[in-house]
């Protein structure tokens, strides 16, 4: 898959617009979700993901296949997120939306409870310090390996382990009442 991405980037650098569109369609949702889980705001997340792809498109000729496209993308998104977080004093906002509202089969009470838990989890994660939050987002939600996450964050695997341990300890305390 990594080779396929590198091939697509190579073709994009030679002017193949469809190749870049394919990369966009493969990774855009992931980029949005990394930013969303870091910032807690859908619009800002989408803006950052767009910006990341625009920058990658502009620098497509300089892309080196030595690094995986996904790692490269995560790095760009992470940098933009960190910059955005510096500019915004408050990271979180917006109520969880109605993503499941079309699903009429689901019991309303269960949905409300799930929504409440989702909100609690989101708030607890958004209260973490930036680096701990990033570590949790990349490992838990993006399911990256420690090595890939450390590379994307530009830190050592040991440092990542330490961040994760602190993040999970903090979350365990914050969500103690909801862990059954």
């Amino acid at each position: 898959m990594a080779d396929y991405d590198a091939e697509l980037m190579k073709r994009a650098a030679l002017g193949d617009e469809d190749a870049f569109a394919t990369l966009f369609n493969r990774y855009y949702a992931r980029a949005v979700n990394v930013a969303y889980r870091f910032l807690g705001n859908r619009d800002a997340a989408e803006d950052i993901a767009m910006d990341a792809f625009a920058r990658i498109y502009e620098g497509r000729c300089a892309f080196r296949a030595a690094s995986k496209f996904s790692t490269y993308l995560y790095r760009v998104v992470i940098n933009l997120c960190l910059n955005a977080a510096k500019r915004r004093s408050v990271v979180r906002e917006e109520a969880l939306s109605d993503q499941h509202e079309s699903d009429s089969q689901v019991d309303l009470a269960a949905r409300a409870q799930s929504k409440e838990i989702s909100t609690l989890v989101r708030d607890a994660i958004l209260r973490l310090p930036a680096n701990q939050r990033l570590a949790i987002v990349l490992i838990t939600y993006e399911e990256l390996s420690y090595k890939a996450a450390a590379e994307a964050m530009g830190i050592s695997v040991k440092a990542l382990e330490s961040l994760l341990h602190r993040a999970k300890t903090n979350l365990r305390k914050a969500l103690a009442d909801y862990m059954g």
Binding site: Y28, A29, V32, N33, Y36, R37, R42, A45, E46, A49, L96, Q99, H100, S114, I117, S118, V121, R122, A124, I125, I136, T140, Y141, L171, L175, Y178, M179
Partner: peptide, 11 residues
């Protein structure tokens, strides 16, 4: 528990 935070769908 933390896996219950749903992803968002891009618009």
């Amino acid at each position: 528990l933390i896996a219950q935070w749903e992803p968002t769908r891009p618009a």
